[in-house]
Design a protein around this nucleic acid. Structure first.
Lengths: 215, 215, 215, 215
DNA sequence: TATGAATGAGTGTTCATTCAT
DNA sequence: GATGAATGAACACTCATTCAT
């Protein structure tokens, strides 16, 4: 195959994602990545020039993908509550896959503030603009307590992301096993919906293709 | 003075806290700490033996202090909602002081899982046990939607901590200045209360010594 | 060449042996070894992981080699006196090559008693067992004064090794040049034989392939 | 007392001798010496200016003392064999007290050849000159095989000193306990006499004040 | 006389990176 | 494309030494 190299590049990228975003090894060395991927350390530089550029590429990739999916969900023509239910479900599932992603981004930006750029996708519409009108409509109808879209989204993000980020802290304090904690996390999908809207997640939503109880 | 050394030790400790927990420089070197504190690098080893032990000491100190204050708040004889209002206020203020603390803990535990010990204070009562009965009472009275104490506390922690943790992310995405963001954070005290209890924060609480709008 | 690295590794090893066992620089730093070998300091860690492991490798190598040669000599079918003559010759020549070896071993064991292991080769036969019977036979025949094999071997070792070990001391006290001292050492081959057996070293032995006057 | 300082100085000196010459810790730090002596580290510099000067002082002291006693023995009017018996006894006992002394001297001289000076006591008569005539007389009388005084003394030194120096090596190879080895060393007093003179150590010598079986 | 505090020079070690093959 | 060898820059850490008290 001609694309043997392409596969190797992908192998390195996926391995690095695992190490950084799943295992949370922020300081993982190129050697550790190479070992885990079963390739020569020098190959990392062959494909990515430097550790730093590999990092940036990973971040860009993972952040863009996330943003696109989030926007896709918010752009659907679903009713507001279903849309948010899908959003919650996506965030939680995403967090289960890459629990340390936020942690990683935060640390990286603290280290090199220039990297903020990666976050603010060029000419991309802000999430809060996507829901502003709908949210106002819901408030007007009295289906949700008055709140700005920024606080609304921050609430959502917080309730979805923090429990994943703080997995190790919470698990330790409450003495939960990995299984118990994953169960706890999935339960949260409903809890978060109820906390946000102050009503139970309707059975109709649970069963739709938004698949809020997946995984 | 006899306590000249004690002062220097404290200076190093406080400087390190700033660098690690306020500036979020997880990988700060001993040299950077020494420079910032204006002392010789070797002094850090003189007082703390190793970078690792300095880290542990800082964590222990800051975590214990936080846990004690949190428990103190939850142990007061205040009505439930006031207690929680105070709790929120404390968490947010705390987060403004040391925004990167959770981030730091998470990274440290990912690196050295043994450090979980530092979190689980010896023979300390779990927070959720402190509120279990009161929460059940509130639920029975219909003053809050049914929820387990674990999820209740997780909601609280998430809503308070994440916005601080993710300051750099959110600030970038929404193009907020530092001042705007601090304002946003303080606003959240009321937003969080409303999100949790689905009622406005009563004026009476705002004005009491729980001082929910402080800072 | 494929073995370029192997050569460099050997270069480092041989250089280190010279510095430690010939020049007697017990405290030689990795930098000094690297300088002497004309390589980068980091290469030492590339090949040997740590200074400690380099040391252990050198010791193991040099001790094993010595033990094997000693046992080979004691296992030959030569007459006893010739065997011992060969043994003396080997020890003295060996000592001229690596005068500080014993000194090094002694210091290392004082520093890390665990290293005794390196000395006691796994399942290796003790030297004194190899000569016990022959020595008893010689004593019975009245060709040597009664002595235990342990004392006999200790006498041999002492008479051969100490003059090399203490080269600097003796040379200073007696004001000998390097050349004079080497002559003195080679003379000792005969002196030692005479001291042990109380007879002159026979001309026949001198000329044989045991080559007692070599070097 | 006015001489409190003098006592402290002596305490440090004796402690250092133990560490260096008895325990064989060549690389012992000033901190280790201070700890062992129970004094402040800075005191070592107060009394001895530097670690190096402390070392030199210890060496000078211990070497001079040894040389004087050795010369005293060789200068007595005892018959030659008794004199040598006393010499052997002294060397072995000395070695039991400070087994690592020679090792230390050798290492120091390898490190700083200037220190040879310490060995060659100013205007002191060489040991071999002290016995030359007597030895020649003994050879003429046929009481000992022909040998130069240099080789004779080297034999003596080797047979007495090496077993002490190489204690750790020999003990390991032959699996001897400390007690067994000390017994072995004391036995050597007679063995050495026999090896040198090819006759048993007379009972009359054993019982005299030269006390060859002491300790 | 004695000491805690402070420092500079060095030491082993790690790591990302480069290069010849 | 891929790799072993090699390197420079940095890192935590140690230690003898100095100094003010």
């Amino acid at each position: 195959m001609l694309e043997e190299g392409v596969q190797t590049e992908k192998l390195i990228r996926e391995t690095a994602k695992q190490i950084f975003f799943q295992k949370g090894c922020l300081k993982a060395t190129t050697q550790e990545i190479a070992n885990e991927a079963g390739v020569n350390r020098a190959l990392i530089h062959y494909y990515f020039r430097s550790r730093e550029q590999l990092l940036d590429m990973l971040l860009e990739e993972v952040i863009c993908e996330k943003r696109e999916k989030m926007h896709a969900i918010l752009n659907t023509s679903l009713p507001f509550r279903e849309k948010i239910a899908a959003y919650i479900s996506f965030l939680v599932d995403r967090g289960i896959t890459y629990p340390y992603l936020d942690n990683f981004i935060i640390s990286e930006i603290a280290r090199r503030p220039e990297k903020r750029e990666i976050l603010s996708g060029r000419n991309s519409i802000k999430s809060c603009d996507l829901i502003r009108e709908e949210l106002e409509e819901e408030i007007k109808r009295g289906r949700i307590a008055p709140i700005t879209p920024e606080h609304f989204l921050m609430n959502l993000s917080s309730l979805c992301n923090y429990p994943l980020l703080a997995k190790s802290i919470f698990q330790t304090i409450h003495g939960m096993t990995d299984a118990t904690y994953t169960r706890f996390l999935l339960d949260r999908k409903e809890v978060i919906f109820r906390t946000i809207f102050n009503v139970d997640l309707p059975e109709t939503i649970k069963d739709t293709k938004t698949n809020i109880l997946s995984k």
